[in-house]
Structures are given as C-alpha cells and as structure tokens.
Amino acid sequence: MFDFNEDEVERYSRHILLQEVGVEGQAKLRESSVLVVGAGGLGSPVAYYLVAAGVGKIGIVDFDEVDLSNLQRQILHSTDDVGRAKTDSAKETLEALNPNVEIITYNQRLGTDNVEDLVSQYDIVIDGVDNFAARYLVNDACVFTNTPLVEGGILRFEGQVTLIDPEEGPCYRCVFPEPPKPGSIPSCQEAGVLGAIAGTIGTLQATEAIKYLLGIGESLIGRLVIYDALQLSFREVKIEQNSDCSLCGAKPEITELEEYTIHCSLQEND
C-alpha cells in the first residue's frame, strides 16, 4: 500500500513501531519537504536527523565554506572538509547516511530576490542562520508566503526554540520587533557557545518539524522554550501575536521584503 521496500521497512522500523507514526506516518514523511537554512551548528543536527528520519526532500542553503573553528559543533562536516563549500560537504555526509532522501543544495546567499521562491517550495523551513539580517529575512519571507518556520538560536550555554506558523500565531518580529543594533550582536562578537548545545536545540527543531509534518503532539506555536544548559532547565515563555507587529500586526508597515545590513563592526552608520 505504501510501497516501502524491505530495506526501507527495516531502516525505518523503529518509527514504524510507533503507533503515532506507523507506515502511514513514515509515508507522510517521505512525501514531505523541509528547507534547512544554514548548514552550520543548528542546521547540522537538523539535517542529519531529518535525513535519517526519511523526510523525502531536504533543501540546504548555505554560502559559507567549512572552517576549522566550525568543527566543534557543525557535525555534518569533518576535518578533511575544511575549505569546501558547506553545501557540498553536507550533501556528501547526508547522502552517505540515507540515499533514499533527495538532497537539494543551494550554495547561495539569501536575499530579497530568492528567499520567497525558496521557502515556498517546501512544507516547512528550519532556521539555522548565523546572522540577524538573514533571520529577519527568513521570518518575513515565511510570513509573506505562509510557510511554517521552526526558529532556533543558541548563545553561550543557552538556546531557544519556537514554531512560527504565520496563520496561527506570532512571528519572530512579534517577539523581537527590531533587529539588534549594529555592533551589539552576540554572534558577530563571537560570544562563544558550547558545541553540544547546537545539538540540543537542533534536535528539538528537527523533532518539532517532524511533529508538525505528522500532525502529532502538542505544537510549539506561541511557546518560546528556553534551554539553560548550566542549570539544566527548560523554561517556557508564552508568546502571542502582537497587534503592533510591523509585519503581521493590525497595521503592518512592512509590506514587502527588505534587505537588512547588520554590520558586525562597531561602526554605527555605514
């Protein structure tokens, strides 16, 4: 009925055993597509688990090359990959893991000209970007195209995750109305992060995407979950659609995509 071959049935047997997944759910995953924006700290575990899970089509966007300092957390890439395009390295790792999954790579910078087209080709988007210009761009594009988005971020010993479904709840701007000031941005200042936390948050993002695709469990819409590794605690902050939101509020000021330039330097105006 769902025409999985013998190898696939064995590969996915621990999913199929789950009442909430079963052969039917596994077939649903095979019919699904996920866009992973960024093949870095978060994108690595996200893509790894989604490919292992048998999601049919995974898109990966990244414009960077693998750097030695990435390897402390970006588990898709290995020592021999230093200097290669992250998309190439990611594709190779992921295809070795599960050849049944179609991996589509976009070795390009996200901009106002390509982001809407990209996100609208997928069932759900996962944010693993390193800069806030891209983060706001992805959020805005997902709102404009009505595409669900799993947001995630990490910093030092902490992480956060939420699900944005533009039809049903708040967007990123509802909670973080404006991009941070130039020069203040933690990721640019290389504030540091414990590598394994990328795994914790990325794995939560992958799980939420799978839950969304299968339609099971309690959704993360309207809930910002904050993980504190030093305390080993999870805290949940209720977030709501903000009627003043400049993007999805009652009187939106943003009606088309804007390109943000957020500099990492301390120069305030250029």
Binding site: G43, N70, D130, F132, G153, I154, L155, F176, P186
Partner: peptide
C-alpha cells in the same frame, strides 16, 4: 518581566 536574548548561532 522576561528578558529574551537575541540568539543566533547557526554558522
């Protein structure tokens, strides 16, 4: 009061 930190951290 909630102080929600900007967190990036993909690449």
């Amino acid at each position: 009061v909630e102080m929600l930190f900007f967190m990036g951290g993909g690449n």
